[in-house]
Write a protein that binds this DNA or RNA. Structure first.
Lengths: 251, 251
DNA sequence: CCGCTTTTGTAACAATTTGTAACCATTCTC
DNA sequence: GAGAATGGTTACAAATTGTTACAAAAGCGG
């Protein structure tokens, strides 16, 4: 690798103004509840959850929260795609994750949110104020345990990503990325072998520790080799899951 | 970066045989308690903690647990240094962290321990069986919350490491590493500006996503530039914290 | 204390990835 | 609908880092 020092001009993001004010949400109608930390909650307790959750809408490119902001709420994505990232003062960026519907966001240490969160597409979120959630935990330990599990999983995912960033080649990173997204979309009811990539090349580059150009070149290579096909603007098809899996590098 | 594909012959590790059978431990005498999740526990509850903790000793290079092992215990390091890592089938390794006295280990998702843990030096641990700890949590929510905090912190550290692996140069990585260890050792009572590196170059390389040679080269460079000095085999001195900080790359 | 192994250090060379630049396509704006 | 801005792609040069090879130093076991 060379540096990653390049300071590319980055499209301006917009601050919260266009998020709709909160509106009440009905958790019992939530179609992706089983993917979230709200899974496994008793039917008669769903109203508890509904009562403390608020639906929010963010337009494309709008910031949901920023690294270091005081963390007084957590969220579930119910629609759209979110990017989490850290920035350096000199403009380098590391995307730490992409969130799909059902994913959780808002983890924080004592120094506030650990990353910034930004809407890639239009995004709909369920918002839970931390202190209200704490109160609910008092009565529902199960819910708390579920959240704990989620954090543990996040940590495991982060460690896998360290392996990718520290020890995998560009091709392996791209293959890992495509397979990972494809699997996650399949769980959410996506068509097998189809991958939707709403993020731009720069997002992928900053996620995989590469440059835009390397991402482009690698994608082109994979196309030439018949492993993937670009069926539409942001739509890809994985033509050989097997081949990509082998290429993604051993676990 | 090039590949990281190189499969170096690695020194054999030894399996648990040389860990001493558990012996009871007195938590009230623990000198590093304030660094661990046992911090902030009431004096009259320390005996609860003592009753479920067991002291264990691991010789240099011995495995404490392996990635995927069923996770039925967590640990605190009380003496020595531990490395956490993930391995690929083809022999690549990513070290996900080095643990010093006071550090916690044993985080796991549902699929067992997320990483392997190995003693770099002789290591002394406090072992807590998970189910006994769970029972204690029922009576002491504070303890549980503290553990939660620790996991959150780990996640934040992991994300910082992603930034390092994805976006920092070799020099910046080395500088970050030295400063980070120095700060952690200072908290533990180490001499200011002194860093003890019990791990070998290969460990550092696998932690920073570099090769042994690059680690050597970079350390030599830093020495030539008067930023560090090697006072003894594994002892280093940071001669310009300022310079290293600047070099470590912006947060 | 000696001989072996392991670890560290250095250098020359090679390779992957990046940097740069030019160009095209698409979308947005006025 | 023209022009600007954004996003994507490719070619080629440059560079950091990896690879290979070998020597020096340190550590270890007998």
């Amino acid at each position: 690798m060379t540096t990653g020092l390049k300071k590319r001009p980055r499209t301006k993001t917009k601050r919260g103004s266009s998020s709709t004010p909160c509106s009440v949400h009905d958790c019992s109608a939530c179609k992706i509840r089983d993917l979230t930390f709200c899974a496994g909650i008793e039917a008669n307790e769903l109203s508890d959850l509904s009562s403390i959750s608020r639906r929010m809408l963010f337009a494309k490119r709008h910031i949901i929260f920023q690294e270091g902001d005081e963390a007084n709420a957590v969220f579930n994505v119910t629609r759209g795609t979110v990017r989490l990232f850290k920035m350096t003062q000199d403009g380098r960026r590391q995307v730490t994750g992409f969130l799909l519907p059902g994913d959780f966001l808002g983890l924080a240490s004592r120094s506030g949110y650990a990353t910034s969160a930004e809407a890639i597409t239009e995004v709909e979120l369920c918002r839970f104020e931390s202190d209200k959630l704490e109160t609910l935990f008092e009565r529902n330990r199960q819910l708390e345990r579920r959240l704990f599990e989620i954090v543990d999983d996040e940590l495991a995912v982060a460690q896998d990503q360290m392996l990718l960033l520290g020890r995998k080649t560009a091709r392996e990173r791209m293959a890992s990325f495509l397979i990972n997204l494809s699997e996650r979309e399949e769980i959410r009811g996506g068509r097998d072998g189809a991958v939707y990539l709403p993020m731009v090349r720069e997002d992928i580059a900053d996620y995989l520790g590469l440059t835009i150009e390397t991402v482009c070149r690698t994608l082109s290579q994979l196309k030439r080799e018949g492993l993937i096909r670009q069926s539409a603007g942001h739509e890809f098809e994985l033509l050989s899951n097997q081949g990509l899996l082998e290429m993604s590098g051993p676990t």
